[in-house]
């Protein structure tokens, strides 16, 4: 009898045992630091002095009056919407193109996906070189065809800074969107197309009545994921501009980094970083709620 109970305990606990390593790691490297970040945001911790005090919401209150913060917040929102939007546009377009059947499709597929695996630092290098003021291809090309008189400082000039950074970001980020959309397109039952064609639908009607409705869920997932990913983005913007001259392209992430590591105000920087987390948390909750509801509807 004792033996039986023991065995059933083992059976009951087994799944938790399998999950334990993952949960411990996630707790150690994600949850715990995150809680600490929120805690730091409530202190006046700095990089240099080890003693620090609890200041409650002091940092947040201070942030409310910090024009740099509000500027970065606006920048982050605009950056997320514009970059995410372009990623979706290009990703969807290329997915439609690649979804057709043609020769060497596999080769095009691979080549187009490749930017996705390039580490951010290398992407940064590639675009710094492309945008280089004297010897960069872009300037030489534009000068060569006499579109411009003197070289453009793509990563400095207020007019070109944002487009230049966004283009670099789109270049590495859209392949992921493309991949997701291709997955979505392939999951549409080909019989639907056959049936619609048999009903006399043209290619436009096929697109609007079969393709788009079939992609509803993928669209939704991609839009939210892009907003989430682009809102928290740091690497490439930092590598290319470090926030730009005068904070022209300072995002919340780069601002947090400036405050916490360069300006040594860890507590204050943590408050900025925590705000990114709060925004993402809300977005993630929306994501979870809506995807699970979508499942139930089926």
């Amino acid at each position: 009898m004792v033996c039986e109970t023991k065995r059933s305990w083992g059976a009951i606990l087994a799944p938790y045992g399998f999950l334990a390593p993952a949960v411990i790691i996630v707790f150690g490297v994600l949850i715990y630091p995150l809680v600490y970040a929120v805690y730091f945001s409530l202190t006046d911790k700095t990089m240099l002095v080890s003693a620090y005090h609890f200041v409650g919401l002091g940092n947040y209150i201070e942030l409310m009056g910090d024009s740099k913060f509000w500027q970065a917040f606006r920048h982050s929102i605009v950056f997320a919407l514009v970059t995410g939007g372009l990623n979706l546009f290009l990703g969807f377009g290329m997915a439609l193109v690649l979804n057709r059947r043609f020769r060497f499709r596999g080769v095009f597929h691979t080549v187009l996906l490749l930017p996705w695996v390039i580490p951010p630092i290398v992407t940064g290098l590639i675009f710094r070189w492309l945008y280089n003021d004297f010897y960069g291809y872009l300037n030489c090309l534009l000068l060569g065809v006499h579109l411009i008189e003197k070289p453009i400082l793509f990563l400095v000039d207020a007019h070109y800074l944002w487009p230049s950074v966004i283009i670099a970001n789109v270049w590495v980020e859209y392949p992921f969107v493309m991949l997701m959309f291709m997955a979505g397109l392939q999951s549409i039952d080909p019989d639907l197309y056959r049936a619609a064609k048999a009903d006399g639908a043209g290619s436009m009607q096929l697109f609007f009545h079969v393709t788009l409705p079939g992609l509803q869920r993928v669209f939704f997932v991609n839009v939210l994921l892009q907003i989430i990913f682009m809102f928290k983005t740091f690497n490439l913007v930092w590598i290319l501009t470090q926030g730009g001259p005068g904070g022209r392209i300072e995002l919340l992430s780069t601002l947090a980094f400036h405050y916490a590591f360069e300006g040594t105000q860890t507590g204050y920087g943590s408050a900025v970083a925590s705000i990114i987390f709060y925004v993402l948390l809300i977005l993630s909750c929306i994501y979870v709620v809506i995807t699970t509801r979508k499942i139930k509807e089926r």
Binding site: V29, A273, L280, V288
Partner: peptide, 30 residues
């Protein structure tokens, strides 16, 4: 496995990949 808490743990684990690295980096550093 079928066990209590499966959905919650699954969702929690899947949500973590949306966490911003920039928020983690200061506490991890210290």
């Amino acid at each position: 496995f079928r066990f209590p808490g499966r959905r919650v743990i699954r969702q929690a684990l899947l949500t973590t990949y949306m966490f911003p690295a920039i928020t983690l980096v200061f506490p991890v550093f210290f």
